[in-house]
């Protein structure tokens, strides 16, 4: 199973910081998301892209997590050499993260 099977996501940018929301489609899977999608796993997933710290915030009323990733946008949106300077496409990469069997009860 991939993260995109159970959650949706949007990326935002401020300077060199990218934030990615992960929202569970079904509130019942939020707890499983919280257990599996840790800041460390997200940092690992974006190795080579995100060079700074990753901090996770929890918003249980929305069944959502919010990842704030430092040094993620090539020095900042206004000076980055990247094709996607805003990092708009990062959410799609996170949604491709594999969720092992058993993490989410079927």
């Amino acid at each position: 199973m991939k993260l995109r099977d159970i959650a949706h996501s949007r990326t935002g940018d401020k300077g060199d910081i990218s934030n990615i929301s992960v929202v569970a489609y079904d509130p019942k899977t939020y707890e499983a998301l919280r257990t599996w999608i840790t800041a460390d796993r997200v940092k690992q997933h974006f190795s080579g892209i995100v060079h700074g710290a990753v901090v996770r915030y929890e918003i249980p009323s929305l069944s959502a997590l919010n990842f704030v990733m430092q040094e993620a946008l090539g020095g900042g949106v206004t000076r980055s050499l990247a094709l996607d300077a805003h990092g708009k496409c990062l959410a799609s990469a996170l949604l491709d993260m594999e969720i092992p069997d058993g993490v989410v009860a079927r």
């Binding site: 949706h8 934030n19 915030y57």
Partner: peptide, 16 residues
């Protein structure tokens, strides 16, 4: 609620 939830967290860091 899904379209709104993505936008609530758009460009937000600490939601508190």
């Amino acid at each position: 609620p899904a379209t709104c939830s993505e936008q609530i967290l758009y460009e937000i860091h600490d939601p508190t």
